[in-house]
Design a protein around this nucleic acid. Structure first.
Length: 307
DNA sequence: AAATCGGGCAACCGCGCGCAG
DNA sequence: CCTGCGCGCGGTTGCCCGATT
């Protein structure tokens, strides 16, 4: 059950905006500000839904918006932030002055995700596709799990570098080393109360663990993991990260059934609440070693050359 | 030259969250 | 505490236009 429509759909215009409508909206917002969007159409003399007005303003009419192509630096930043934050486009867009979440989202969907795929990197997990395919292949030839094998208590996240058959592609070793480093920086910045920080020293919350979740989870519940990949393939989105609730109270992956990756997201969300995520990202970006392209080459810094 | 295809982008939709009454 | 409302977000759709056949 969702909210009722915010306006009378029969009496509002839909579709592309005309120059006249843009002018009316711009004139109104420049004189009165944006305030209450539901009242804007009436006050501005527009036969539009307030929601549509807000969208048009924020994505197109708002001052200081950039309309030129994305730069190499912006591309790299988007890829990096997507690896850390997933499809939280508004947060990513906040780090890109003059860009809207819609801009970033469209650019990702139409360009960046394809570039990553062309480079053999899965745009959802930011892991080499070869790893994922190999993992799925491994799954396919595995015998059905025994009852003991399916026990959640046997679940132990592993480092991908230590997992046989999960070695990154040679060209992407640097990429993942740097990526994991920054992902772990995010974790490090989390509140001490965050699940990962509360874990025991030999079982700390690491993004690499989450990335390796599926491989390790094969040991516990192969059918569940495969289901996640199938979901991801069907949904074409972040389903592989899971929509489950959170990690078990006893630590990372303790529950076994929930995706540990979703626990990472939960940890991020917790962190959002306790310290502004903008500050978190700003801290990361302030690190001179942050940018992939700074000195050592990497996959992301070469995105433009991959096509 | 016409038809078809595919990419890119603007806009829409549904939902969750926060806040005020 | 509950309810309704408005805002913002992410996912999706549909149109436009250039490329290809």
């Amino acid at each position: 059950m969702g909210r009722p429509p915010c306006c009378d759909k029969a009496n509002v215009k839909k579709g592309p905006w005309t120059a006249e409508e843009d002018a009316k909206l711009l004139a109104y917002t420049s004189n009165h500000g944006t305030g209450n969007w539901t009242s804007v159409p009436q006050r501005a003399g527009l036969k539009r839904c307030g929601k549509s007005c807000r969208l048009r303003y924020t994505n197109y009419l708002r001052p200081n918006l950039k309309h030129e192509n994305f730069t190499q630096e912006e591309e790299e930043l988007i890829v990096t932030l997507h690896a850390m934050l997933g499809s939280r486009w508004s947060l990513i867009a906040n780090q890109l002055p003059g860009r809207t979440d819609n801009d970033v989202k469209n650019y990702w969907n139409t360009k960046l995700s394809k570039k990553l795929r062309q480079r053999g990197i899965d745009p959802i997990t930011h892991r080499p596709i070869a790893d994922l395919m190999q993992s799925i292949g491994t799954l396919a030839i595995r015998p059905p799990p025994s009852a003991a094998g399916a026990s959640s208590s046997s679940y132990i996240p592993v480092n991908p570098a230590a997992a046989p058959g999960l070695q990154p592609l040679h060209d992407d070793v640097k990429y993942h080393a740097v990526l994991n480093h920054h992902q772990q920086q995010v974790i490090t910045l989390l509140d001490p109360d965050a699940p990962g920080a509360a874990a025991s020293p030999d079982h700390q919350l690491k993004w690499s663990d989450f990335l390796a979740d599926d491989a390790a989870a094969f040991e516990a519940a192969p059918q569940v993991v495969l289901g996640q990949y199938q979901e991801a393939a069907v949904a074409g989105g972040g389903a592989a990260y899971g929509d489950t609730d959170s990690i078990a109270a006893d630590g990372v992956g303790g529950g076994g059934e929930d995706s540990a990756a979703s626990a990472f997201i939960d940890a991020m969300l917790d962190s959002d609440k306790k310290m502004g995520v903008d500050q978190l990202i700003a801290d990361l970006l302030a690190d001179p070693a942050y940018y992939y392209g700074g000195g050592s080459s990497s996959s992301t810094s070469e995105l433009g050359q991959g096509g």
